[in-house]
């Protein structure tokens, strides 16, 4: 029986090893070299790349930007996702249609979405045109070309884009909560809020864990929206860690250094995920 089960696992193990584990080990190795990604010669430089990272102000900025986006988007999509899921759970026959509508942005190409938002947020775009038409010309702003607004715009786009996905995760979790628990709560005189606080929330902790981890991972790797909307600008104000990795690798010909940053990002995600898992474990019933 044990041998048979190993055979079942083998294809996935082989594919995963060749397509993921080996390249990752390769990235670890590259992070210890000064390879430029082009020439055939390179040197093993030990931990020099990691030491260089400590004095890289542009990377520090990218880490801060990534953390801001991750924090803002993760909190927003999880709170809003849960809220919308609770509402949708009571939508009756409309549930499927509404679920599809909310999920739609997530299945559209991110690049396509970014171009749509670009036409909305540009200084002479849809939003400012509407504000102008409503006689609100004084509140017109530059949503992309101003550093503070640019990062907010990225967050708004990401929240809009991923909300549907997290809403579906929460909806699926909510629908697994046994109806009897709500009935029991009703019998005990529980209010709507108390049902949510003492029945729904503890029962969907595994769903919360998945949703939070997925949102953190997605935003920690944020690249495409930033690339299309601002290209990391103005200046470096919206450069994320992943954007920095690509720039170092293919712009500056520093693939060894960029691999070190990728490994660093890996470590951060691992730590955050472990902390998140420990916290959510304590919350599970």
């Amino acid at each position: 029986m044990r041998k048979k089960s190993i055979l079942f696992v083998l294809p996935a193990f082989v594919i995963y090893t060749f397509l993921m584990i080996i390249p990752i080990i390769g990235a670890f190795y590259l992070s210890l070299t000064d390879w430029n990604g082009i020439s055939q010669a390179y040197h093993v430089v030990g931990i020099k790349n990691y030491i260089d990272m400590l004095s890289d102000a542009r990377l520090r900025n990218a880490i801060m930007v990534t953390l801001k986006i991750t924090l803002t988007v993760s909190i927003s999509v999880n709170v809003l996702g849960l809220f919308v899921a609770c509402l949708l759970n009571r939508a009756g026959k409309m549930i499927n249609a509404l679920r599809s509508i909310f999920f739609l942005p997530y299945v559209i190409s991110t690049v396509a979405i970014s171009f749509i938002w670009l036409s909305i947020l540009s200084y002479t775009g849809v939003l400012n045109t509407i504000l102008n038409a409503l006689g609100m010309g004084s509140v017109i702003a530059d949503y992309i070309g101003n550093a503070q607004n640019a990062i907010r715009s990225i967050c708004v786009i990401e929240i809009w884009r991923t909300l549907g996905f997290h809403m579906v995760l929460y909806l699926a979790s909510i629908q697994t909560v046994p109806e009897e628990l709500y009935e029991a709560c009703t019998m005990d005189g529980g209010t709507g809020w108390q049902k949510f606080r003492f029945v729904t929330l503890p029962m969907i902790v595994p769903g919360i864990t998945i949703s939070v981890i997925m949102s953190i991972m997605t935003e920690m790797k944020q690249y495409d929206v930033v690339k299309v909307i601002t290209n990391g600008g103005p200046g470096y104000s919206t450069e994320t860690v992943t954007y920095n990795i690509v720039t170092q690798a293919f712009g500056n010909n520093m693939l060894g250094y960029s691999s070190a940053i990728a490994v660093f990002l890996f470590a951060i995600i691992a730590v955050i995920t472990i902390i998140q898992l420990r916290v959510s474990r304590k919350m599970e019933v």
């Binding site: 390769g26 690798a249 470590a267 995600i269």
Partner: peptide, 25 residues
Amino acid sequence: KRMISALLASFMAVSMLAGCGNSAP
């Protein structure tokens, strides 16, 4: 199991980046 799943999640994240480069010469 949880530690393993955490590591796998992180692997998934970094594998996106690993794909950016060629394997080392």
